[in-house]
Design a protein around this nucleic acid. Structure first.
Lengths: 189, 189
DNA sequence: TGCATCATGTAAGCAGTTACATGATTCG
DNA sequence: CGAATCATGTAACTGCTTACATGATGCA
């Protein structure tokens, strides 16, 4: 289960509450892993019970109190063990591709709007990643020289950027294909 | 649940047994969805009970008998309903990216072999996809002109190819970053 | 007064993985 | 005789999603 390990990495980068973790999973860590707060709270509870994390109650002004989690020595050991264990190369799960092949048994043109919607979502995500890269790594505000941790975060972000660019280009290809199928060559051609 | 829909699409493309479906999920459909035979048999049973599929016992010579599944009108309706319902753009789940960020709290150099292993796996997959493209779509054996269904299968395959190429390029970037971190500039520079 | 943000959780159900289990045929 | 391929399944467990549930503060 890699959610445990993603949480360990995120809390090593910076301790925080379940709520903060959920927000990180929507943002930077969300480039490569997703999780909802429900799941995060449950796993946090288990990881504390297993001794991988420490909790500290933090009182706040003008906000509800929070629990701040940090990684124990045991948690570091568990993470290191996972880092040294080989994992299988990922395989994709892409619902949209199922839909595209399914369109052969329905109306291909009906899928155009859906694909355009995805295209917009990926363009937005790309813009968001590029803004984050400028802010954290390539802009004038960025630390120079970067720490190894920052270099590794940056290369992961570059992966997210490359993924979004590739996806946008592919969706252009998909749209062109759907349009071609929707308007087949007339008898004059 | 998209496994149901992936099965519907696959059986509409060609009826087949659970075993055959499992093999397809390792190959062409595996470009965008994975499933094991255990899961497939369970879902097939449920889909027959729900009236989405028909089973037919087929006796074979020199092989065990098999059950051939095909899609009912009800199954087509369910697929069409799903095709017309918007889905959320995917978010990634990439264990290797978690490992890369985690390497900041371990030895980055220790990850190089793992990344190289993934690099090889993705190159192999790319070669396999390209061979499939040549065989089914661009080679001399390919049907001309292609049917709409084949055009859609092809554009999905092009997506798989683009994904593998992007991933290989990114893993090159990751390897360069890990090597840079493993051999920091000496005092002479 | 209502909405957004901050903050934490429980419960039920479905999806997916891993381990276990069987048995026929073909080929070397 | 053993290994590979064809063929179908059950059981247990783990992980993930969806729905439900509460309550404070700050701002318009």
């Amino acid at each position: 289960m890699a959610l445990d390990h993603a949480i360990l990495v995120s809390l090593l980068e910076r301790p925080g509450s379940g709520y903060e973790l959920a927000r990180r999973f929507e943002r930077s860590i969300g480039h490569f892993w997703t999780a909802t707060h429900q799941q995060i709270y449950r796993v946090l509870g288990r990881m504390v019970a297993d001794g991988l994390l420490l909790v500290r109650e933090v009182e706040q002004q003008g906000r509800p109190d929070k629990k701040e989690y940090s990684v124990t020595a045991s948690g570091r050991t568990v993470l290191a063990a996972w880092l040294h264990k080989p994992i299988e190369p990922e395989s994709l799960r892409h619902d949209l591709a199922v839909k595209i092949r399914g369109a052969a048994f329905d109306d291909p043109a009906a899928l155009i709007q859906e694909v355009e919607r995805h295209h917009r979502a990926h363009r937005d995500r790309l813009a968001h990643y590029l803004a984050g890269e400028e802010r954290d790594f390539t802009g004038p505000e960025a630390p120079a020289p970067p720490t190894p941790g920052q270099e590794l975060q940056h290369v992961v972000l570059r992966g997210g950027i490359a993924y979004e660019r590739m996806t946008i280009a592919w969706l252009d290809d998909v749209l062109a294909t759907l349009h071609r199928l929707a308007t087949p060559p007339g008898p004059g051609s």
